[in-house]
Design a protein around this nucleic acid. Structure first.
Lengths: 233, 233
DNA sequence: TGACATTAGTGACGTTTGGTGACTAATTCG
DNA sequence: CGAATTAGTCACCAAACGTCACTAATGTCA
């Protein structure tokens, strides 16, 4: 299903001339992110697991191909998807292609990997060995998610449709890798007009029940600020 | 020189199976940025001008190829270079390849286009017709430069080694497309420890002479800020 | 030569933004 | 009931930022 190559028996370091699209699907998994990996079809493959990848079909857009692969890998479409670039140095790739185009996708928490053991979620900190080029793609995916965190609804796409503000803050803390102050977080969120409260409350065991919110961004003028020099040197 | 294809007389919509690297070289030109374009070698080409592009050579890294193309197009190496992604939808490209990898490069002001008329600088606002895929690459290059403006030394790479603070501010204003307040700009710059003064002053016709500065970033701790919700909805 | 225009550079004030600790509120558990 | 736990808010203070106004140093021109 995944192998669309014409039968080429060569195992030598001859690269196929095409290129692949490689997908990094991320979902929250406890205190960290997890990546979806496919078990290698070829038992002789040097790595047992790999990112989902495929060759681009004729007359298919890159973005469309990535979405199609997301559906193929999960049964549903990722809640967010973005290209992270082209990867081609000498590093090895399972498809033996010259070049691979990487995509990051987000999957809301709680979506299980397809049954059958062909795919599984692996925590970021405990990945099995991957082909070097795919390893680079995973690392870039991680960076990209952090970079986009404040410009795209990353955290919201990893949460269910309704969530508590504590859950939202925990998601930001997971993605940023550091703690945030409750009052500051909520004040900033208030000013951004990104969420609206629902009528529901959720009692999570002990403690005061929390109100549920949903992601409902409202138009606001982009603040005409001065320059930020974030460059560190 | 640029055409490395095996002689394929086909003019039909048959795509070559390879991919190209396309370079958007930018330099300040008056009140806006300018792009370096090559005159099409083939007089029957549908567009008279194109971005510099080439096919990746065997065992060559994408980054290396982009740098090589920058040197070939200008005689010198770009002062900054970054990949901006892979482009492949149905849109036409002069090389008739399935996929193109775009790069942005910066060139300090004052570097002339090579003599001979094979290349020329075109102001952003007044570009000639380009193949649709290259047009998309140019647009993405522009966005990327603005996105990176506060994280990479974009403005400094477009200026000569020493410059006045007014020139630096003008460069930021050019890139951002809006005016900045002088005192705020300088205060923020001061806090960022990015420049150091030289002993030289420059008298530019009328008005008080300005001190020259050079880009000399000093290490500083990354500020542990809270979250920014720049997302506009 | 002196008034004026022009550009560079800085000081100071008030407002907004953001970090922080401490408070109140509502629930479970014993 | 009281302690523990989690949610939600308030108020204080410091840092950051927009703005105006001022001083400084040059050229231009009457």
């Amino acid at each position: 299903m995944r192998d669309r190559s014409t039968s080429s028996p060569a195992k030598a370091p001859i690269r196929r001339s095409g290129f692949s699209v490689d997908l990094v699907l991320l979902t929250p998994h406890g205190k960290q992110l997890a990546v979806l990996l496919n078990r290698s079809a070829d038992p002789r493959a040097r790595e047992k697991w790999s990112l989902p990848y495929d060759l681009l079909r004729p007359d298919e857009t890159l973005d469309v191909a990535a979405d199609r692969m997301g559906r193929a890998a999960l049964g549903g479409t990722p809640s967010w998807l973005e290209q992270i670039g082209a990867f081609s140095d000498g590093r090895r790739h399972p498809a033996d292609v010259d070049l691979s185009v990487g995509y990051v996708g987000l999957v809301p928490m709680g979506v299980p990997a397809p049954v059958g053991g062909v795919a599984a979620w692996f925590p970021m900190a405990d990945l099995p060995a991957l082909a070097p080029r795919q390893r680079a793609i995973v690392d870039t995916a991680n960076e990209r998610v952090r970079e986009r965190l404040d410009q795209a609804p990353i955290a919201f796409r990893l949460l269910p449709p309704t969530f508590t503000l504590s859950e939202l803050q925990s998601m930001y803390e997971l993605l940023l890798g550091r703690r945030l102050h409750k009052a500051s977080f909520r004040r900033a969120l208030q000013g951004a007009w990104l969420v609206e409260p629902t009528e529901e409350w959720r009692s999570e065991g002990r403690g005061r029940p929390a109100q549920l919110f949903r992601y409902a961004p409202r138009r606001r003028r982009s603040s005409r600020r001065g320059v930020r020099f974030e460059l560190l040197g």
